[in-house]
Amino acid sequence: MKNLIVLFAFLFYSVLISAQASQDPEFTKGFILLGKLSNGFTSGFKSSTPDLYLGGIGLNPQITVAENVLRVGANAGMTYNNKKLSGLFGPMLALKIKTLDTKYMGSYANIHLLAEANWGTAKQQMAGGGLAVELFKKIHLGITAQRDYHFNTWWFQSFIGVSLSKSKESDD
């Protein structure tokens, strides 16, 4: 865990330095609200628990706290797993690691790392992370893996998110 924190801090620092060197249109100042649809499975690996389908919907507000680098936010959603519906809530971080751009015409996407912790109404206690692509500042596609420390299971999900907030960037 300590190594993970050091790695995250190192990534944050190096991305912050590179972002400050040039104009970056990704992870700009402001607030976004994502509507998310996720799909995946839970697995206990060596335990006797079978792999089970996992699906969910949720909202994910995020605010940029370090321009071009870091957003913090929260997850709030409903999830279906093991024939039960439960609510999931928790904080999250998004660390931009790469801006995908055209040489002269601005960017079109970014790749970012996710770190999140969630608590569920069915006593889930989870932490994990993932990798996501934000395309045209509208569509988010990603995969996440979270460990449920209470039930000793892993949650593997892919998700698609759509930005529901309106851009406030000016025209001129």
Binding site: Q23, D24, P25, E26, T102, M105, G106, S107, Y108, A109, L135, F136, K137, K138, S167, E169
Partner: peptide
């Protein structure tokens, strides 16, 4: 000032 190209179009 540069932007996300796709966002500007959308």
């Amino acid at each position: 000032k540069k932007y996300n190209f796709g966002q500007r179009v959308i």
